[in-house]
Design a protein around this nucleic acid. Sequence first.
DNA 1: AGGGGTTGCGCAGTATACTGCCCACTTTCG
DNA 2: CGAAAGTGGGCAGTATACTGCGCAACCCCT
Lengths: 191, 191
Amino acid sequence: MSNIVHKDSSQRASVLQHVSQNIRRLRHAGEMSQSTLAQKSGVSRRMLVAIEAGEKNVSLTTLDLIAQALQVAFSDLIKAPDNRDPSRINELAWTGVHPGSKAVLLASSAASREVELWEWRLEPGEVYPCEPDADGWSEQLFVFEGCLTLQVEGQQHLLNAGEFFTFASNRRYAYRNDGEVATRFVRNVVI
Amino acid sequence: MSNIVHKDSSQRASVLQHVSQNIRRLRHAGEMSQSTLAQKSGVSRRMLVAIEAGEKNVSLTTLDLIAQALQVAFSDLIKAPDNRDPSRINELAWTGVHPGSKAVLLASSAASREVELWEWRLEPGEVYPCEPDADGWSEQLFVFEGCLTLQVEGQQHLLNAGEFFTFASNRRYAYRNDGEVATRFVRNVVI
DNA sequence: AGGGGTTGCGCAGTATACTGCCCACTTTCG
DNA sequence: CGAAAGTGGGCAGTATACTGCGCAACCCCT
């Protein structure tokens, strides 16, 4: 008979409780099946089933493989599903060279998908170039003051006040105010 | 012969690179030996040796046990060792009722241990009461102008200019300037 | 009905995380 | 100098993370 005392698997670490939900949520957000995630990550689908069921005690490397396949940070998999940093809310995230140009994060949540709500203001002549996001991200714009020129890889879209536009943000794009008054619009970043 | 393809253990996840350093750093910060941490966490010392050497692919539950024993959040073990919020630097964190009394955070880093460096200034008669910190936190004081009265649970310590003092801050304590000139000292908060 | 996609689970097998015990080395302290 | 504490690592053994396979159940199509 062995005298080895092992950890009681019935009382799992609180971290593990979030992991399964996070993986499933993010997998659905990326519109991936268990099979495709298994293929992308290199983790067997059998293991993914067990993890999403919360049956297995995942190792760090396995979890990291999944995180990379989901294109999220490792910490996104272990944190509680509902904890976007609240300190960023109402944070002044960017100011332009022209005084008054600014970007403010209005809201942020992780419901069934990741959502960021921004309020933007561009003074006349102001330009904000964006790096491409990862695949799957898209943006929705609603201009409520002035007019906004959205440039997406060569193509230009002129949005007047009251107009709405949505596009995939995995390409190089830029916001520009070609008008003569300040442009104010709401920007919704989604995955 | 098996056709099972296994993950190459030579290319470890980037997360694992931080874990070993973090555990060792935080263990030393708590002034614990491998043996005591093994006893507190329930993880065998043999395993701790392997983890700190970066030889093993830790599971979430094992890492969580260690995190609890170290009294840190799980995420503290996986994140890069150097990420204290830099925006707090030079922040005016507290002003007293007497004009000129102030607390300024000078520096903050996570080198071999968690460190917060403060510059304090207490006008004559000023008192700053502190709530107890969590176990493991300690403070180092160095007075370089005036004299400081440190009160730790009934006991009083009078520190003159040039004097140094260190104590565990998991008890109720207070700074007080009983002198007739302003007291200036450096406060080092450590875990 | 029937075929394709997704999911859950049982099973056997392999790799490895993890344990306890051992010894060797170093540092510190009296 | 010896004793004690901290550390690194070899080794055998056990538990389990992880894999591949195969089957059943459940969609949503036409």
